[in-house]
């Protein structure tokens, strides 16, 4: 067979990114070898894009030995869905999408049920359904320890009970780069190859590896409305404006991508990767600032994770 070389002519990665890449590839291979039914959670965002790129590297020249699952809440940015389908086609990925049928039937929306209930039903419960249906015993995710305080205590192999619950007080010790992948039937592991990456590492890696991203990460004039201190994209008919809300066109971009009603844009003129990175280097707020679900209650992320969220 022919072995394709993707990196010819590309300058070598700096040792910092190379070390992070090596670690992630090691984790991918270890999980793929030790578990019977691994799966990768693909959320279309920048971290998922890096995760997918690393997976392709880990198993080259072979194909990915596992499918990808996307939890589609029905409220993602349309550009995300188009991007997802294009990526899946280009790499010949086995992509499974899942939407919580109960939530659909009951017409659960971020507006009708509030962000906490909505996230639980359309994301956490949907994720558990998808994992149960596939009988997956390991799920890769793109979470990083620098994202949020409770994530800082997460293992690279995060052990979950048959109910997908995380018990932060009872985690397996993880020494050296030796991972314990032994589980009882019904139990599972969430594996996080990007644990030791920071936001700026992600961006520098995207730049060095020329990884394609959803255009929403780059500034352009978009219709937005200000709500609860967040700039919400106002391009979807399902967004009902409140009496005193005005739609304006502004130069904005997104630092993270989720469901559009819950994800705030930032005012920015960064239209290229270089400009995004330059902007980040002087940023004074964290990327999760734009995420409503982190703020809906104190210790919010930990609570969601205990309940089975990623």
């Amino acid at each position: 067979m022919n072995v394709i070389e993707h990196g010819r002519g590309k300058p070598p990665l700096d040792p910092h990114l190379k070390a992070l890449e090596n670690e992630a590839i090691h984790i991918f291979r270890e999980v793929a070898a030790e578990f019977e039914r691994p799966v990768m959670l693909y959320s279309i965002g920048k971290d998922s894009s890096v995760l997918l790129h690393l997976a392709l590297k880990a198993f080259h020249p072979g194909k990915l030995p596992f499918p990808l699952v996307h939890i589609d809440t029905g409220w993602k940015f349309p550009e995300m869905i188009a991007f997802r389908d294009a990526v899946a086609a280009r790499h010949g990925l086995d992509l499974i999408t899942h939407t919580n049928p109960d939530g659909l039937r009951e017409n659960v929306t971020p507006f009708s049920h509030g962000s906490a209930r909505y996230t639980d039903i359309m994301k956490t419960q949907a994720l558990k359904q998808a994992l149960d249906m596939g009988r997956y015993d390991a799920a890769f995710g793109g979470a990083r320890r620098d994202e949020e305080a409770s994530r800082a205590k997460e293992r690279i192999y995060s052990f979950r009970t048959p109910d997908h619950a995380w018990d932060p007080r009872n985690q397996r010790p993880e020494l050296w780069s030796i991972y314990n992948g032994m589980i009882h039937p019904g139990e599972s592991v969430r594996a996080f190859p990007l644990s030791n990456w920071t936001e700026i590492d992600i961006w520098r890696y995207i730049q060095a590896e020329k990884i394609e991203l959803v255009p929403l990460y780059f500034a352009q004039r978009r219709k937005v409305v200000e709500r609860d201190g967040m700039l919400i994209l106002a391009e979807d008919k399902r967004l009902e404006l409140l009496p005193d809300e005005i739609v304006r066109e502004e130069m904005v971009r997104f630092r993270t991508l989720g469901c559009f009603p819950l994800t705030g844009a930032v005012r920015s003129h960064a239209t290229t990767l270089d400009e995004v990175i330059a902007e980040l280097e002087i940023a004074t707020v964290s990327e999760r600032q734009g995420r409503a679900i982190d703020r809906d209650q104190s210790g919010s992320m930990e609570k969601k994770k205990r309940e089975g969220y990623f």
Partner: peptide, 13 residues
């Protein structure tokens, strides 16, 4: 970062 740590003022892990 953990709720229990904040409540008890200790580092667990």
């Amino acid at each position: 970062g953990l709720q229990a740590e904040r409540e008890q003022g200790i580092t667990i892990d």
